[in-house]
Computed example of a mutant assay.
Amino acid sequence: MDIDTRRPRARSARILSPLFGAAVTAALLAGCAAPASPTPTVTQTVTASADPSPSPSPSASSTPTAGVSPSGIGDVELGTPYDDAVAAAGATPVEACPWLATGEADGYMLTIQRPEVSDQDPAVVDLVQVSASPVDLEGKPAVGPLTAEGIGLGSRLDQALAVYPDAVEVESVGDRRYLAIETGAGTGSVFLTYTAGTDIIWGVTATTLDEPPYESCA
């Protein structure tokens, strides 16, 4: 049995050897037939290697941009007709509380609110908010719209206090806390929401109210 096994291998080597020699010969001839083609190939390779450098741009484009101010958040401005704002934002009214509308965005939730009983016709937006779960924000960069100073969902409390040294802490129900950071004359105020004992900002609100309500739809 051992003798039979070695013989086929020897035959295979003898059969492949001429083929291998022919392949080498063909490769050499091909190399001679292509005079200076390797030079442009190297140049093209170097040029192509520079192409990946702009690749971080998609992630940069998804980075949140300034969009929070006392007049609103993103494209939703305080004082605009509620129905128009909801439609423009693609939000969905909450069936149990028609004065609220919500919409899912990339990593956060958008909430638009009008007064439950409005003195104006049409009713106008008095609160717009973005929020996310603190657990989902842990250890990640900020998501959603940012203030002009770069603070948003996922920012740390000490970061906010560093750029807003005059911010005022507002206690709410239980362990919820608001940090009032900015007020605009004739518009509204910006509040950052966090939980006492932690430092992750999980809510950003622009509103004409004195402070964000603990529950808008009880």
Rank of each mutant, 00 (worst) to 15 (best):
A123Q: 08
G188R: 04
G154N: 01
A196T: 08
D121R: 14
V173T: 13
R177L: 06
V128R: 02
G139L: 05
Y108A: 09
P165F: 01
Y164D: 01
D175C: 07
Q120H: 15
D175S: 12
V143K: 06
I181G: 00
S131T: 11
V128K: 03
G154C: 00
R114T: 11
Y178N: 04
Y108N: 09
G174A: 06
Q129Y: 02
A142H: 05
T198A: 12
Q113W: 14
L192W: 01
S172N: 10
L161D: 13
D126F: 07
A123S: 09
E171T: 10
A185I: 12
Y108F: 13
V173S: 11
D158R: 05
G184L: 02
R114L: 11
D199Y: 10
A196C: 08
Y164E: 00
T183P: 05
T195I: 14
S189F: 00
V190E: 00
T111V: 07
K140V: 06
L146D: 05
L153H: 03
P141R: 06
I200F: 02
G186R: 07
P115K: 10
P141S: 06
R156P: 10
Q120F: 15
P145T: 11
S155D: 13
P145H: 14
P115T: 07
F191P: 01
R114D: 09
Q129A: 03
G152R: 08
L127I: 12
G107Q: 05
D175E: 14
Q159T: 12
L137P: 04
I151H: 02
V173E: 14
T193F: 03
K140Y: 06
A142W: 03
E182H: 04
P122N: 04
K140D: 09
I112N: 11
G154V: 01
K140P: 05
P145R: 08
